[in-house]
Design a protein around this nucleic acid. Structure first.
Length: 582
DNA sequence: GCCGTTTTCGGCCCGACTGTTTTCAGTCG
């Protein structure tokens, strides 16, 4: 996301938060939140649109008022409304919204009645019992606040999909063992394949009378640390903290006849759900988590498919449910046939003991054969990666010979390509000369250092790499690490245009710490007609399992098989690689 | 504040759970 988009999105979100607490019209608050979300998911720099209110108002959810505010920001670097709003508001009050159970109404109350203006004030006041005296606050609420405050202060951000998925799968497996459970799955942002997950949503189909038994069994499972809420059909827990990965898990139990409607509802996104409900209303029906109904007559509910069908829509894959344009496409039966894990037939970015991997060329190739791949590229690090034991020219020459030897041995079983993950140096030149790169079958060019470079420099640097005639794939383009490192913020449009011109591919690095390109970048690449590569960057056998996260990200970007070079048949891929060298 | 296949004004998704209430407000997803 561009820095301007990010700053503007933050300003609008801040205004929305403050207005909530000061008691503004809820719909006005929602409108500001919508503008913030639009800016956040925008695939281009809003500054590039310019300070023309007419053009800005074409953005989703942006009307006259917000367009004028964005234009003001683009010209002056500030928004007058924002400054005025903040002038009367303690800046330390907003973080209270992060405390579970504390909403705008209660925060306003604590502020006005008790003079609380920060988390520190709240913590102090919670030491005694005086808050119980405030209207609407009782002993239980105060106790809940004490617990949730402690959690809000230590809890990290959203957890990475690679941490969440195994936990969710474990709970699903346990619940499936219960005889009362007819069906069970995870839903939420995890099912949509988002790179980070706020909480894990589980959905169970069971008869109404068994709901209590299932909830009871759920809260007794080993990893459960705290029960947040527990009703007959809805239960929330937090798991024990394993490092930073204590996570909230919500369980809903619905009758089998409602399973599809509930799955739809709990998969979200919220925006997709709202759009679906609005569509139902327009067709004279009502949609909730129990069913699609006309009057009081149920129309659909047991499966997602029948709900979509009754609304005149094709089934929308969860990864696309972001209220982007998927409902429009589903209405025209024009949704893309998304890539599947089983479509991947080649791994084009992997490391061996030659640099920082833990397995030999042969073991890597065997693992690729076991996966049913027809091609594997050996791409160890280049010389600047000292810590990763990057290969200097001399070692690379010998390494190429080793790869060729294995390739010869395995001929007929798998194609083994001699490649390199060559460093993109700070100025955009590559870590090997072209005369060396020419020797290789495939070249993945990636940035590893100077990852906080300013955007203009980063763009120039990456452009130079793209335009090297021997580069086949641009690897983990921004160098970001999810929840850990921002990485580069280059002008993605410019890079995508250059990659298109060159005819090379851009990588979705499937490692769940990277997922780089991210979904929005990958979508922009596909829309521009640039081919994607989905690779695991495997250093060890277990890393090949990361492929699922890369495929989920590609699906979120709307990728079909034809957009991804790893789906090509052996000969087609070989021809394509050749075509990148002109 | 935003928006339009009933509308340029009058709507804006819908339900579960909790706590402090005597019928509901606040919060969450």
């Amino acid at each position: 996301m561009s820095e301007t988009n990010q700053r503007l999105a933050a300003l609008f979100q801040e205004m929305a938060d403050v207005m909530q607490i000061t008691g503004a019209d809820v719909f006005k608050v929602k409108a500001f939140e919508k503008v913030s979300r639009t800016l956040e998911s925008l695939d281009r720099d809003v500054a590039a649109i310019g300070p023309d209110p007419k053009k800005l108002a074409e953005l989703e959810g942006v009307g006259k008022g917000s367009a004028a505010r964005i234009a003001e920001f683009l010209q002056t670097g500030k928004i007058t409304d924002h400054e005025e709003l903040m002038a009367t508001f303690p800046p330390t009050l907003r973080p209270l919204l992060k405390v579970q159970g504390l909403g705008p109404k209660t925060i306003a109350l604590l502020w006005k009645e008790c003079g609380i203006t920060s988390l520190e004030d709240l913590r102090e006041k919670l030491k005694g019992d005086e808050l119980c005296e405030v209207k609407g606050m009782g002993q239980k609420k105060v106790e809940a606040l004490r617990q949730n405050l402690a959690f809000a202060e230590t809890a990290g951000t959203r957890i990475r999909i690679g941490s969440a998925l195994p936990v969710a799968q474990w709970f699903v497996d346990q619940l499936r063992k219960l005889p009362q459970v007819k069906d069970v799955t995870y839903a939420g942002s995890l099912r949509r394949g988002k790179e980070t997950i706020g909480d894990i949503d589980l959905l169970v189909a069971a008869s109404e009378k068994d709901a209590g038994t299932i909830s009871d069994a759920f809260v007794k499972l080993g990893p459960v640390a705290t029960v947040i809420t527990k009703g007959p059909t809805k239960t929330s827990i937090r798991t024990k903290r394993d490092g930073e990965d204590g996570v909230q898990v919500d369980l809903r139990v619905v009758p089998p006849a409602s399973y599809g409607a509930a799955l739809l509802y709990f998969t979200g996104s919220k925006e997709h759900n709202i759009a679906m409900r609005e569509r139902a209303i327009k067709q004279g029906m009502k949609l909730n988590e129990y069913a699609l109904t006309k009057g009081d007559k149920p129309v659909a509910g047991a499966t997602e498919q029948e709900v979509f069908k009754a609304l005149g829509l094709a089934w929308v894959p969860p990864e696309l449910r972001e209220d982007h344009n998927e409902i429009e496409l589903a209405a025209k039966n024009a949704l893309p046939e998304l890539i599947k894990l089983a479509d991947i037939k080649a791994e084009l970015h992997a490391h061996t003991t030659a640099s920082d991997g833990v397995w030999s060329i042969r073991d890597l190739a065997s693992a690729a054969i076991d996966r049913g791949f027809h091609t594997i590229a050996v791409t160890d690090h280049s010389k600047s990666q000292h810590l990763a034991r990057g290969l200097d020219e001399e070692r690379l020459e010998r390494h190429i010979e080793d790869v060729r030897a294995v390739a010869k041995e395995l001929k007929g079983k798998i194609t083994v390509l001699a490649g390199s993950e060559v460093d993109i140096l700070v100025d955009g030149s590559l870590d090997y000369s072209n005369s060396i790169l020419k020797e290789l079958d495939i070249v993945v060019a990636s940035p590893h250092a100077s990852l906080s470079q300013e955007p203009a420099k980063a763009t120039k640097r990456l452009l130079k790499a793209i335009n090297n005639p021997y580069v086949t794939i641009m690897g983990h383009l921004t160098g970001r690490l999810v929840n850990k490192r921002e990485g580069l913020h280059p002008d993605m449009r410019e890079l995508i245009a250059a990659a298109k011109e060159r005819g090379i591919a851009m990588e979705i690095n499937a490692n769940h710490y990277r997922l780089d390109l991210r979904d929005t970048h990958a979508r922009a690449a596909i829309e521009a007609g640039v081919k994607l590569a989905i690779d695991t960057d495997a250093h060890a056998p277990v890393d090949l399992n990361e492929l699922v996260y890369g495929v989920l990200t590609a699906r979120r970007a709307g990728a079909r098989c034809g957009d991804v070079i790893n789906c090509m048949e052996r000969d087609e891929l070989a021809r394509w690689i050749k075509s990148t060298r002109k």
